[in-house]
Amino acid sequence: MDGDAEQVTSKFLTYGAEHSGEVVLNSSNKPNQRFCFKRVSLLNLEENITSYFDIREPIIIRLEYSATQTIKDLEVSMRVDNSSGIPIFTTNRSSSLASGVSGGNYISEIEIPALFLVSGTYTIDIAAHVPNVEILCQHQSLITFEIEETGSDMALYKGTAFGVVFANIPWKEKYLIM
């Protein structure tokens, strides 16, 4: 590909990632697998599957997975990377729920808040693991999504590198009389 370095790097890093808003994973090739991801879906506010999001609306990531038995201390993790391959954040199931799972089928949802990520292209990695012991299942650059600038406070700075997340940090000011 020809183009500026950032554009070429972005295409390279997202090559092979699914752009439809949903990935169905086939785990039949590993019959003795204790854990498997079945589906990853990206949903908008209306719960429609999409890979394009308005910067002013949240993104819902739905993970469907199953365990064939109880897995003590199991951690399910999701990481979001930007188009340059830089990890933006990782979130773990244990931040909200007890670690470990019983045998069965599960659906988990993670909501990325509106006005959190700046406009751009992102990929998602998912993994199931027992921390520092074993990786049960891992998928890197599995699915890609885009956030479109539709009117944030930073819209007038389009094309300027002002960060990867929005920081709504209040300012305080005092007027000094000289």
Rank of each mutant, 00 (worst) to 15 (best):
P87Q: 08
L115G: 06
N92Q: 15
I59D: 02
N92H: 15
E47Q: 10
L136I: 05
D54Q: 01
T91L: 12
P131Y: 08
E57W: 01
L117W: 11
V130F: 06
E64C: 04
G104T: 00
S102P: 05
N92E: 15
C137F: 14
V133K: 15
N92R: 14
P87G: 10
I61H: 05
I49Y: 00
S66G: 05
E47Y: 01
P131H: 08
Y106I: 04
T123V: 11
T91C: 13
A128L: 05
M78D: 11
T91R: 14
Y122K: 00
N105S: 14
N132R: 12
T90K: 14
E57I: 03
F89T: 09
K72M: 06
Y52N: 09
S99W: 11
I60R: 00
A98T: 06
P58G: 03
S84W: 13
I112G: 08
K72N: 06
A114H: 06
Y122I: 04
K72W: 02
R62F: 00
P58V: 02
I88K: 02
L97G: 06
I71K: 03
H129P: 00
D54A: 01
G100Q: 05
F116I: 03
T68C: 05
T90H: 09
I124H: 07
E109N: 09
N48V: 01
V80L: 09
G103D: 01
Q138N: 11
P87H: 05
Y106D: 00
V76R: 07
M78I: 15
S102K: 09
I112E: 01
F53D: 00
I61A: 02
A127N: 12
C137K: 13
N92V: 14
I88S: 08
P58I: 06
T121R: 06
K72G: 02
S84A: 14
G100T: 01
V118C: 09
A114W: 07
Y106Q: 05
T50C: 02
S95R: 14
I61E: 01
E57M: 08
N92A: 11
A67R: 04
T123R: 04
L136Q: 09
H129V: 07
S99C: 04
N82V: 12
G100C: 00
E134Y: 13
L97H: 11
F89P: 12
E134V: 12
I124L: 07
S77A: 15
T70P: 00
V101A: 03
E109K: 10
Y52S: 10
V130Y: 05
L136E: 09
I124Q: 02
Q69T: 13
F53R: 04
Y106M: 02
I112H: 06
P131R: 07
Y65K: 06
N132F: 13
P113Q: 05
V130K: 15
I55N: 08
I71Q: 04
T123D: 04
G104F: 06
A98H: 07
S99E: 13
I88N: 07
D73H: 13
N132Y: 14
Q69K: 12
I86E: 15
I49R: 00
